[in-house]
């Protein structure tokens, strides 16, 4: 199948300047990243703060364009001016702070904002708004003000807002970082359902390990480079390496790893509590 997003040797630098405009420092946020993301997959990009994962994510819908290298979204080069709006329509983006991405004061109007910008006819907008809100389970809140919603609900509205643009791919830039555990569960559930039921490609940027255990593929970033990639099982076998990258592993994985170090013959790549329980039962 064709890759929905492909990058080749992408480089992006943040340049710090002093008051006179002289360069005082350069931070390479994304350093020669090449990757391919398959249509319909659930992808997680992991990394601690400052690893360049958010900067990379902003390249996927042409908010940022690479200084070197190329990003193709559904075959379109993001560097070409004429592609920008099609790229943004293909790859929707959900940001970290739910308050700063809701534009309208009523939930349904906010979801309609994207289609309005695209010039979708009025009746079609209503249909899309209804479908998107139902898809994230927020339909009954359509007349509410976003200010009275919880963080998780706001973030689901943001996802519906992107969904209403009928993107092939949704990029979520740490959508749960500002939420409580309840809100995190709500958002992740909504995202997983979109991926499974609607077949939307999901790219989840996060630093929470527990959120990536169900992903089809995981990329781990450190100082602007992709340092590991593979299935969650493959990644979480490398506990030592992950610790070196200042990333936490899920607790069941950590426990299994510690047990194994003490000589208990557990299999590699245990991700959830149930798997661990099963593995321990199987020991006898």
């Amino acid at each position: 199948m064709m890759d929905i997003i492909r990058t080749k040797d992408v480089v992006y630098e943040y340049i710090r300047r002093d008051d006179e405009g002289a360069v005082t420092g350069i931070t390479t946020a994304v350093d020669h990243v090449s990757l391919g993301i398959k249509q319909g997959d659930f992808i997680a990009i992991l990394g601690h703060n400052g690893s360049g994962k958010s900067t990379l994510a902003k390249h996927f819908n042409a908010i940022l364009t690479p200084e070197e290298g190329t990003v193709w979204v559904d075959g379109m080069d993001t560097l070409e001016e004429k592609n920008v709006w099609n790229v943004r329509q293909t790859a929707g983006m959900v940001f970290q702070n739910p308050d700063n991405q809701i534009i309208a004061p009523v939930v349904e109007e906010d979801v309609g904002f994207g289609p309005e910008n695209m010039g979708v006819p009025t009746e079609e907008i209503w249909k899309r708004v209804e479908e998107s809100l139902k898809a994230v389970g927020m339909y009954e809140f359509r007349k509410h003000s976003p200010n009275n919603l919880s963080g998780g609900q706001k973030q689901r509205v943001s996802i519906a807002g992107v969904l209403a643009m009928k993107p092939k791919c949704i990029v979520l830039d740490e959508p749960t970082a500002m939420l409580d555990p309840q809100g995190r569960r709500e958002v992740l559930k909504a995202v997983h359902e979109l991926n499974k039921l609607e077949g939307v490609t999901v790219i989840l940027i996060t630093h929470y390990m527990e959120e990536v255990t169900d992903a089809d593929k995981v990329f781990v970033m450190d100082s602007g480079k992709v340092v590991m990639q593979g299935t969650p099982k493959q990644i979480f076998t490398l506990v030592d390496e992950l610790k070196e990258l200042r990333l936490d592993v899920p607790q069941p994985t950590l426990l299994a790893w510690e047990l194994k170090k003490r000589g208990i013959p557990l299999p590699d790549g245990i991700l959830t509590g149930e798997e661990l329980v099963q593995a321990i039962k199987d020991l006898k």
Partner: peptide
């Protein structure tokens, strides 16, 4: 916040009043 909001609006294809349709 203004900076974040501007990115979010751009990400949702906002490009001024031209060619915009209305939900209501």
């Amino acid at each position: 916040r203004a900076n974040d909001l501007a990115s979010a609006m751009e990400a949702r294809c906002y490009r001024g009043g031209e060619g915009r349709t209305k939900m209501k």
